[in-house]
Design a protein around this nucleic acid. Structure first.
Lengths: 130, 130
DNA sequence: CTTGACCTTCCAGTTACTGGAACCCTTATG
DNA sequence: CATAAGGGTTCCAGTAACTGGAAGGTCAAG
């Protein structure tokens, strides 16, 4: 398989796949003409990476997960630990964004949003609300 | 005021303040010895920036807001539009993270997390859940 | 033989800082 | 007077994870 086909099947841009090779997440073979040749195992890894990235795992977390994925003697506890730590980060981020949303909503609700210059949003940014 | 004092009062690292000058968000004066001299107006802007950044506005959005902040003839509608667009982005991000959390929680719940290699998390990453 | 769709590499840019090196200014102390 | 501490300065490089673009090789079709 060439990069175009594998890109389509994995749902990743070809550029990203080349990048993943650069940072040694995958190691496709090479054809006589210099083209990358992807095996099924490469495709599996790319699908895995695509999924893991879409769940917000960092590249380094993906590297760890991919190593566990390829290790038939892994302990599922190791995988679970990585996943749980990431889940905590997601939850912290959600709380942070919800706090932002709350504050921002308040500011917006107080603003007439017309042609006049008076603006509670700018006031709120200039000095914290009480 | 020197950079140390203004940093403390604005709650921003000195490095960040120098960076904000680099990208022309602020323009402090200079003392004879080359030290930056911050006026009250500079401090106000830095507080404004600190607040806006903590609400997740990008630097370019901050630049826009800062211009509106300094424009006594602004229309509050312009400010509200910027804020509302940002609010939508925050809400979209929250939804995205909540979806991640949901999927990840399911995977984690299905995983024994012990010494055995069998792992639904890795399986779920290798191929999307039904 | 040329056109178009592939593929290749390499370089630069993105966001918003952050760390570190090398060096200057000011003040206090032995 | 030397020096040490605690400011300040600039500049360079690195972070995360790609993405865009240029310049050029390859391949199948008409």
């Amino acid at each position: 398989m060439n990069i175009g086909q594998v890109a389509e099947q994995a749902g990743l841009p070809a550029k990203t796949i080349r990048y993943y090779e650069d940072i040694n997440l995958i190691s496709p073979l090479r054809d006589g003409n210099g083209y990358r040749v992807f095996r099924d195992s490469d495709l599996h890894k790319l699908v895995f990476l695509s999924r893991a990235r879409s769940l917000g795992f960092s590249i380094e977390e993906c590297r760890t997960l991919l190593a566990l994925y390829g290790d038939k003697d892994r302990a599922s506890g190791d995988v679970k630990a990585v996943a749980q730590q990431h889940l905590h980060q997601i939850e912290a981020k959600i709380l942070e964004l919800q706090a932002m949303r709350g504050t921002l909503s308040e500011l917006i609700n107080g603003c007439a949003g017309d042609h006049r210059p008076d603006c509670p949003i700018l006031k709120g940014l200039a000095a914290p609300l009480a």
